Amino acid sequence: TCYDTFLRDSVHSNHFRPTAVLQMGTLPTSKVLRAWLGSPDAVSFLLTSRPFNTDPLHRIAMPLYGDAHELAEHLQHQSVESEWAKTWAVLDRDTRSSIDARMEAMDTLFEGKVSWILSRHLPVGTPVFLASSMSVRYAEYFWSAGNRAHSIFCNRGANGIDGTLSSALGLAHRGKPAVLLTGDLAFLHDSNGLLAARQLKGSLTVVIVNNHGGGIFEHLPVAQMDPAFEQYFATPQDVDLAKLCQAHTISHQAVTDWDSLIEAVSVLPQAGLRVLEIQTNRKVDKSALSYFTQLP
């Protein structure tokens, strides 16, 4: 849903303030959602199949061990506030319509639009691996709801960047043609995974958003600490990805407009590894994100 956008408005976040929260599995990445769920007035329950802490918010919570089916069998019937859900659904629908209209009208290369396009144009049932940092976050913000049945995978945790390409190759091996959405640093961090391309029995399309550094840090206060920010946090790189792919005899395509991206992902190869590179500007991407998260 579009909670990351409309929960930024205090009117909406206060109106939908929960009195109880049932968390199943791990939380999404959105800081806006996490802050809203962290309300001290809400009673929290954590449903997990294994006895470990799945709550990064460190709330006082009641652990429930099992799965959703087991929980449903033992729950007593509860009265519900139907208007709450209806109002949320209407707001989510209207927010989605506004986002879609702005995406349709955007011609410039914005990192967030890549996720939006993939969600609409990848073949039905495509397995999608999301890299850490902004790749997974933009997918959370802009991946369109629908019936295309894309299976989503990612590595999470303090070292979620490790093994990004190799994990995606494992997903594609002996499976359906798969797609990896990644930034340049996550890709380069595991570029030795390219050595395994010859062993791949399947198809992997790597969509690299190359903004020449760590775009996620542009959204943090440390971005104001120039010149130290660029060297120590953004860590800019100028690797020629086309030549890197050529060295490994891997197909590389520079994508310079949205129509080319749509054409490249609407039908996926049946075998082999290929790279689609989209170059963006991280500082422009930050401003563009604000354009979508601050809707009137």
Rank of each mutant, 00 (worst) to 15 (best):
P236W: 00
E104I: 15
G163W: 08
E140P: 07
S266Y: 03
F292Q: 08
A234Q: 04
F153N: 04
L273W: 04
V267M: 06
V265S: 00
H12G: 01
P269E: 07
D257L: 09
E140I: 11
F45P: 05
T95R: 11
N159E: 15
A89C: 09
A149P: 01
K176D: 12
A68T: 00
Q231R: 12
T249A: 11
V265Y: 04
Q253A: 07
S79Q: 15
W143Q: 05
S166Q: 14
S132D: 03
Q270N: 14
T256F: 08
L75N: 06
E73C: 10
P269H: 09
R96I: 01
H248W: 12
A85P: 05
S290W: 08
R59Q: 12
M106F: 01
G183S: 08
T256H: 02
L273C: 11
G125H: 12
Q237D: 02
N159L: 09
V265E: 01
Y138S: 10
W84C: 11
S133W: 07
G272V: 11
L188N: 10
M24N: 10
L220Q: 13
L130M: 00
Q270I: 04
P56V: 14
R148V: 11
V206W: 01
S287H: 05
A145I: 06
I161S: 01
A223Q: 06
T126S: 00
A197P: 08
L181N: 00
Y65F: 10
L46T: 02
T280V: 10
Q76I: 14
V32T: 15
H58S: 04
L122N: 01
S251Q: 15
S151M: 12
K113Y: 09
H189K: 03
E81F: 14
P227C: 11
T293V: 15
K286G: 07
E111S: 11
V222T: 08
N210V: 07
E218L: 10
R50L: 11
L169A: 09
S191M: 15
L47K: 04
